[in-house]
Each structure stands twice: as structure tokens, then as C-alpha cells.
Design a protein around this nucleic acid. Structure first.
Length: 369
DNA sequence: ATTGCTGAAAGG
């Protein structure tokens, strides 16, 4: 009785999925662990929580292999993984190693943000619960969502929670764009909504992280509509089986949406064609909106200047950690204030050794002051 | 194959 589930977000007008209850979806959200991630927790997972003993091979796979990508057993990364890395890479790593230790008040803030995002989404989509058992099913839902959203965007001019995926510096990056819409001028605008607990403008570090996140979305979305994200690339990273039969609920759903596909491979080809032949432009404008959670007041808006080389350069730096090309690093001394709100501050190796040491061993800086 | 598997983002 696999209780796996996925929520399909479809436009009511475009696909006629309007009459399904969303209560099931909400229950699903409540039961979800806060730190879901495409990576297994790593070492702690290998200590044999079921009856099976830890084999030498498993041990080696878990600990001796070089790259974090392998150690955490990830096939892909989330866009938010890299964004979190931008905030503090060391904190992101601890988050992967020791998941699920979030302070209650932090969790509450995230929860409120998630609710506001969901409410926004419900303004333009209906949520449909589709039971899935395999990862092929789960990806099929993602693809069906794209297939229904493209015509929605082109006819109604707006979609929310648009799935994106693409190869960035050798790894597959997966994410969801908050909102895409056409402006009055006919430009395609991405909106990244950020809700805030306090009615204050975001600090530079916050903006930097959010701009990077938005930039990554554009980088991936543009690649998708330009035909650079092929079914072969996706299957290569995810190890999906294009010929594996899809679950009955997923097949039924595809039919209801008017898509005659018999396999995941068909579906991927269809998505590829739809992305490249629907006259979708690249994203023209990147906008970040900061909203006060309590009153829904807009605190600030950032229009991000997209610099492809800049985004790719940053991505390259973060991916280098995942590939095992370099050790993780924490924040610079100037940003040590971030540690105040970090759950891992007291165990942080970077704090113990790294910056504290390097800052006291800077003879020139000391003497010149 | 003994060899599996993953909603992304939620904010600081």
C-alpha cells in the first residue's frame, strides 16, 4: 500500500479537471516531512534501521565514494539546493546530513509562506490528486502538468508553479517557477514570490540568493524552450525507464487531458515537441516580489538583470562541491551574522576552524588597522 | 540486478 501521491496542477478551462477535491492534496501536504529532498540522508541511512545488515559494499558506497552527489545518492538537485548553497553552503550540507531539525518557529514561518503560495496557485489552477507508485509515474505527472500549462500560458497569459528541469554544469537541476505571465507589452515575465515574517526589506544577502534562484529558473526554462533539454538528457540523469508501463491512474489522467500516450517515452517526446513548437519565448523579465506575511503588503520588488555568464559561473562553483571537486565552505566573516539563525551553528566545523582562524591569522590586516 | 528509491519550495 504505497501511499505515494502527487498533485497535478491543471488549468480548469484548459483541461476540465475542475471538479476534483483538493482535500486529499492538503492532507498529503500536512503529512509531508519538511525537508523532502532528492538526496537520501546519507551516512545515517546506512546504519541499518531495518533487519538487513549493512554490507561492506553499502558501507563503501555510502562513505568511501568521493562526491557528495554519490554520497547523498542524488540523481539530480533542486534549484533551491543551489540557492540555499548561495546563502551558506555549509548550512546546506548540514541540512542534507541531518535533515528535519528545524526550529518550530522557523517551520511556522515556512508553513505560512507555503500557504500563501498555495492560495496564489489556487487562483489560477485546480489541484488534482493522482496516486503514483513509481518514479516514472511521478515524472509523468510533471510532464502532464507542463502539457496542460503551455496552452494555458499561451491563451490565458498566466500559469503558476511551472515545472522546469535541465542540465546545468553537468547535473540535472529540477525546480518549479512560481509564476509566468505575459505583460501588457507582451513580454514573458517570471515572478518569484517571497513572503516575509517581518515588514522589512530584504538584506543584500537575501536578494542575492533570490536573484540567483530566479536566474537559474530562467536559465533552465530558456534551455527547455530552445530544445536543449532532450528526453535523452532527462533519462540519462534520472535513470527513468521510458518503456516501463505507467500506472493506471496516470494513464487515465493522460487520457482525460487528451494526451494519447502509452509510455513515459511518448510523453517525454510530446513535452519536448510542445516546448519547442508552441512559440514560447525565452523569459524577458525576472521579478522578485517581497510580501509581508501578515498583511500581504508588497515590501519591495526586485527586477533582476539576467547575466547568463554570471549565473553559469555561480552554478559552476556550487556544482563543483556536488561533484567532489572542492570542500564545502561556510560564510565569510562579514556574513557571520547568518549563523545567528542557523540550527547547526554549535556543531559547525567551519565556525570552529575556518573563518575564525583565518581572520585571526591575517597579520597584514591586523597590523594595518 | 542482490543492486531499490526521491513532489520542490517554504524563510533567514
Amino acid at each position: 500500500m504505497a501511499e505515494t501521491g502527487a498533485a497535478e496542477k491543471g488549468s480548469a478551462e484548459a483541461s476540465g479537471f475542475s471538479d476534483m477535491s483538493d482535500s486529499e492534496f492538503l492532507d498529503l501536504e500536512d503529512n509531508q516531512a519538511p525537508d523532502a529532498s532528492p538526496c537520501k540522508p546519507g551516512p545515517s541511512e546506512l546504519l541499518g534501521k531495518d533487519d538487513k545488515p549493512v554490507t561492506l559494499q553499502t558501507w563503501k558506497r555510502g562513505l568511501a565514494l568521493s562526491s557528495p552527489m554519490e554520497r547523498f545518492q542524488c540523481k539530480y538537485l533542486y534549484v533551491t539546493d543551489l540557492a540555499t548553497q548561495n546563502w551558506c553552503e555549509q548550512q546546506m550540507v548540514y541540512g542534507k546530513e541531518l535533515p528535519g531539525i528545524l526550529a518550530p518557529e522557523q517551520a511556522a514561518i515556512l508553513d505560512t509562506g507555503a500557504s500563501i503560495h498555495l492560495a496564489k496557485e489556487l487562483e489560477v489552477h485546480d489541484l488534482v490528486t493522482v496516486p503514483v507508485t513509481t518514479k516514472e509515474d511521478a515524472w509523468a505527472i510533471k510532464f502532464l502538468n507542463i502539457l496542460s500549462m503551455i496552452p494555458s500560458l499561451q491563451s490565458e497569459g498566466r500559469v503558476r508553479e511551472f515545472p522546469v528541469f535541465g542540465e546545468v554544469e553537468g547535473v540535472l537541476l529540477v525546480g518549479v517557477i512560481d509564476e509566468l505571465h505575459y505583460t501588457a507589452k507582451g513580454e514573458l515575465e517570471l515572478v518569484e514570490l517571497k513572503t516575509r515574517r517581518r515588514p522589512l526589506l530584504p538584506l543584500e544577502a537575501q536578494k542575492r540568493k533570490d536573484c540567483f534562484q530566479a536566474g537559474l529558473y530562467k536559465y533552465i526554462f530558456d534551455a527547455m524552450v530552445q530544445g536543449k533539454v532532450t528526453p535523452a538528457i532527462v533519462t540519462h540523469h534520472t535513470k527513468l525507464s521510458p518503456e516501463k508501463p505507467l500506472g493506471p491512474a496516470v494513464l487515465r489522467h493522460a487520457q482525460q487531458g487528451g494526451f494519447s500516450v502509452k509510455s513515459l517515452g511518448d510523453l517525454m517526446e510530446l513535452v519536448f515537441l510542445s516546448l519547442t513548437l508552441s512559440d514560447l519565448p525565452v523569459i524577458d523579465i525576472l521579478k522578485i516580489e517581497y510580501i509581508y506575511q501578515e498583511t500581504a503588503t508588497v515590501l519591495g520588488t526586485e527586477i533582476v538583470a539576467f547575466d547568463e555568464n554570471e549565473v553559469r559561473g555561480q552554478a559552476q562553483h556550487y556544482v563543483a562541491y556536488w561533484m567532489g571537486h572542492r570542500e564545502p565552505q561556510g560564510v565569510d566573516v562579514e556574513e557571520a551574522w547568518k549563523c545567528r539563525s542557523c540550527n547547526y551553528a554549535d556543531i559547525c566545523e567551519w565556525r570552529k576552524g575556518g573563518w575564525m582562524l583565518s581572520s585571526t591569522l591575517e597579520p597584514h590586516a591586523k597590523r594595518n588597522k
